[in-house]
Design a protein around this nucleic acid. Sequence first.
DNA 1: GTTTGATTTGAACAAGTGTTCAGTTAGGGT
DNA 2: ACCCTAACTGAACACTTGTTCAAATCAAAC
Lengths: 195, 195
Amino acid sequence: MARTQGSHSEITGPKLREAARSLFARYGYAAVSMRQIAAEVGVQAGALYNYIPDKQSLLFDLMKTHMDELLIAYDGHMRDGAPIDQLKQFVGFHIRYHAERPEAVFIAYMELRNLDPGNFAQIEALRRNYEARLEEILKAGVESSAFQVPDTRIAAMALIAMLNGVNTWFREGGRLSMAEIETLHWDMVRKGVLA
Amino acid sequence: MARTQGSHSEITGPKLREAARSLFARYGYAAVSMRQIAAEVGVQAGALYNYIPDKQSLLFDLMKTHMDELLIAYDGHMRDGAPIDQLKQFVGFHIRYHAERPEAVFIAYMELRNLDPGNFAQIEALRRNYEARLEEILKAGVESSAFQVPDTRIAAMALIAMLNGVNTWFREGGRLSMAEIETLHWDMVRKGVLA
DNA sequence: GTTTGATTTGAACAAGTGTTCAGTTAGGGT
DNA sequence: ACCCTAACTGAACACTTGTTCAAATCAAAC
């Protein structure tokens, strides 16, 4: 046996990333073997190394891609407006965007410790970049006296932590719809930062 | 070689749990081997099995102990009072208690997926128990019209997520003291739930 | 129809996994 | 001084780990 029927890098490549994303999210990077990933792809473990240099790079690639796409999507989503409006946009965007890709989100903050130092630094920088965008909104709101926030950095971290919480328990078809959850959270965020 | 000088179960037992807690927190349950733990304890891997039936039980024991102690400490800490005062007590307790044992906290919510189903159910029940205590405070506040919280369950989850966030970035000797962080968070929580 | 290059297999590698246990030594009571 | 048992070693078990690579087979271009 060797090359199999219908084999194509444009099929196997994405399949590999999807399988890795799914398995890493469910069982964790360290607990998933290359052979498990290969089985999910429908291939032998050796074949995976046509697509990745090693397991670590696979993890990094998933996290890097996720963070890059997050920042691009955010920048494409935001419209100008008063700080209060921008904050509302942020909350809505964050909750929806993260709810739509729970696996990538889960990996991006659960597997940080499994990154090599250099890779970790890169992901960390992207994360800080995203956090800074929220802090800028808060700063603008404080400057215009729309918000009363004693420490914008802490507030940004606290708000993101709160919004991230949604991903730990939200399941499609549960008691509340995504829109209701969004409203409830926007309510708390708004009141929490208001002057 | 066999039994070593000064060997005692009252020393090795706790040492084992401390080593496991430290290593699991840093590298993750799946990434840490029994031999690594044994090396940290200063013993061969086989000796660990005088103290635990298997690796899984070690993880479960750490998590169960943490959750039990959390609930006991909480019940011992709380004093009667108006909902607003109880909420303030909760916020202070939660932030401080968790900041004092970052490793156990980290494990307790990062390693949930590495628990066997039965073990998972137990830890999950304890966690829900803790969350319910906060929700009770919120409910009481809504009933007395002190709080304006449309959905107490979601609010409880959101607030805990926000408070848990502190543990991801707080380091002793940083820009802010624990007391300042407490104040800042209490400010946001208070405003977020106020009528 | 032939050739070229892309793609996968299957076996191999050395190292590491959790766990067990017979054998050995130290601690503590008598 | 003796004995018992608590505590540990060190080797072994069967298996899994990430990764490499020659050989085999398919896809596609000519």
